[in-house]
Computed example of a mutant assay.
Amino acid sequence: MYSLNGRFIYKVMINVILVMSICACSTMGKVAKVSFISVKEIYAVQPESIRTNYPDWMKRTFFTSELLTTDYEKWRVRLHSKANLEQYFLNNKTFTELEYELNFETHRMTVELLFEQKIEVLQDNEQYYAYDFSFSNSGKSLWKDYQNHFYEMEKPWFNYPVSPELPANIKREIESILYNYAPNWGYLSLREFMELFELNTERRWEDFCFWNNYQYDDSSVCGDIRIEDDLDAMQGANN
């Protein structure tokens, strides 16, 4: 596995890990950016047979490097549903909130999700409709701000698991959400994303589950006990 440029890959990845562990230091900004981009480019040119054989810690470093340097224009979100919702998405706008936290302040922006296509997919031996969305250009400035803070080692935190804002009757039809922020890794479930993102600590995901801000199925991450946040469902339960 380490033939060809294996030693170079190893040295670059060790540098990336060291950069991620360094405390705030603005002089490291350019080094961090170059290191992350180098690891992303290394992964992109590796054959699939080599990618699948990397140990988990290398996969996490590869994924995290691409995630932190990804192009906003390439972000995609996929909604899985057994219902045919194409006409709804064609005729209605869908929004979500992008946000990052820095120095105990939350920077938030509402952006439109642009419907691209409906396809049929097979997952876990079940047939679903998959609805793909890109992100409108209005959110690009927020992502750039986050990246600038990150490269300056100011330790911002970007909240990647976005929740599309949908009416309750449409939301109930959504089985799961898949995320593609790193094109070389394709669409990932919330669990897969969690396990690959190097900067996700156990405390981060405990907070995620505790605050229950996620409006869709989070059972693969948080377990089966969830607080119901659907107002209509709550009212129905009380009747």
Rank of each mutant, 00 (worst) to 15 (best):
E173S: 13
E101C: 03
E116Y: 07
I22Q: 12
N91S: 15
N159C: 07
L196V: 09
D217I: 00
K74E: 15
Q46G: 01
P156V: 09
D145R: 15
Y2Q: 13
Q215P: 04
K155L: 11
N53D: 15
A233D: 14
A44M: 09
Q87T: 12
S26D: 14
E192Q: 12
F104G: 07
H149R: 05
D232E: 11
D132Y: 03
V77W: 12
Y10E: 14
E41D: 10
R60E: 13
S176D: 04
A24R: 10
F197S: 13
S38G: 14
F158C: 01
E120H: 10
E206P: 00
N169W: 06
W143R: 13
H80K: 12
M1G: 09
S163L: 10
V45D: 04
M58A: 15
G29R: 07
F150P: 01
F8A: 11
W57N: 15
T61N: 07
R204K: 11
R203V: 13
P183Q: 08
G139I: 00
V39F: 02
A237S: 09
M153K: 12
F95T: 00
L196Q: 08
L122E: 13
L142M: 05
S189Q: 10
P164A: 01
F89V: 06
Y214C: 08
E112C: 04
K144P: 02
Y179N: 02
S21K: 15
I14F: 04
K118G: 07
Y129Q: 08
N239Y: 07
E152G: 09
E86W: 04
L67N: 02
K74Q: 13
P167T: 04
E198G: 06
M58N: 05
S220G: 06
V111P: 08
S65R: 02
E173V: 09
S49M: 11
R51W: 13
N200V: 09
A182M: 03
D71C: 11
Y160S: 05
W205C: 03
Y10G: 04
Q117E: 14
T61A: 13
S49D: 05
L18T: 14
E165T: 14
K33E: 15
M153V: 02
D224W: 01
P161D: 00
D229I: 08
K82G: 04
F210G: 05
Y100L: 08
A24Y: 08
S138Y: 06
V34K: 10
L196H: 08
S220T: 15
I37M: 14
W211A: 05
F62W: 02
Y88R: 11
M194L: 12
D218Y: 07
L4P: 01
R76P: 04
V77T: 15
G186F: 06
G139P: 00
E228C: 10
I50P: 00
W143T: 04
N200S: 11
L18P: 03
L90E: 12
M13R: 00
Y54I: 08
A32D: 06
N200T: 03
K118V: 11
